[in-house]
Design a protein around this nucleic acid. Sequence first.
DNA 1: TAGATTGTTAATCGATTAACAATC
DNA 2: TAGATTGTTAATCGATTAACAATC
Lengths: 210, 210
Amino acid sequence: MGNLKIPEVTIIRISIYSRYLSQLKEKGIRDITSEDMARGVGIKSAQIRKDLSYFGRFGSRGSGYNVRNLDQQILQILGLNTKWRVSLVGWGNLGLALSRYRWFKERRFYLTSIFEFDPEKVGTFIDGVEVMSIERLEEVARQNRTLIGIISVPAPVAQPIADSLIRAGVRGILSFVPVVLNMPPGIELRIVDLTANLEMLAFHAQGLSL
Amino acid sequence: MGNLKIPEVTIIRISIYSRYLSQLKEKGIRDITSEDMARGVGIKSAQIRKDLSYFGRFGSRGSGYNVRNLDQQILQILGLNTKWRVSLVGWGNLGLALSRYRWFKERRFYLTSIFEFDPEKVGTFIDGVEVMSIERLEEVARQNRTLIGIISVPAPVAQPIADSLIRAGVRGILSFVPVVLNMPPGIELRIVDLTANLEMLAFHAQGLSL
DNA sequence: TAGATTGTTAATCGATTAACAATC
DNA sequence: TAGATTGTTAATCGATTAACAATC
């Protein structure tokens, strides 16, 4: 059984396993061993078994895992048996791209409300969703019971926007703004740091690394 | 002095410090202690000093760090004293957003070549850069001596595109495609996994976590 | 000098991995 | 049953943190 203290990286990897399993399912593959999964996702088989062990026992010794079953179980663990309503704040270049990103829907995340400062953009419809004024953020996000927010606004307003989302009842925030955000305890923040990632690559390419 | 085996996360954090220092410099702040930096970036002061210690001694006991100097040193470490030419492959929604992302230039990354499959888009100019056919990828990227590539193409072609980039001499790849990529040794790969990040938030919001 | 803060060591904490007994 | 592979333990590895001597 073994629970308590699940590493963050384990969740990220579980999510990767989930995506891989849905591929296997589409291909009609019935069973898979941790060893074969390991090859498929580029992670050691012991790691995969360890990760899964935080949540229960899903395999059968001697023959591995049933794809359909493991897939279902993992979706359950991640909470993807429900549809998730997501608020997107900031409909600039990046926001627009995010609002059209097809993978979100595939993983059961629905951008049900979009907010933007620019009055020129407010009122536009994208995929049946109206782009609304930021003024309405708190009211609408609360009303929709949105638990997840995405921030792609200019740096100086990132903190106040995060604060608004939290006041509206959001429990997790994905930020694309390369800025430190203060969060109250219990609110999960993930920052997608594009420049830091490029800088890692530059550091390595430079040769200075090794 | 202490070198050898620098953790990956250290580089990411160094990049965060760098961004913070450039803010401080703009504000005209002359000196800062690790304790004050810690508050600014939300990382423990001991961690900051440890991270810096991998690369040398930049402070002065009793008074902290000179902002201008530390900023310069870190830029040097990260390799940001040079301009970096970057190839962007895939000019869909996300690719378009990336080609307009202002932070890249600010951190000295220049998208000097852009490639796309769709013949309708080929020939467009964005910021003085022509969108070229993917067919020209290998030739042009090699010619430009591009060391960094960004991939935002449909999943099925991600691997062949990565292969092309590597053949063209690229040393590091930033991929936005949620797909496992095989890399030869020595090539650095960073995957920006948007859905995995959202799924982490869902996992937490679900309450199942604690 | 006295006070302050770095740079570094050593202790702690946590995550990965190998190995294997349990068991399908 | 014999063979295979899981689930789990214990060993290893690596990263974070506290603490403090060095020193500005």
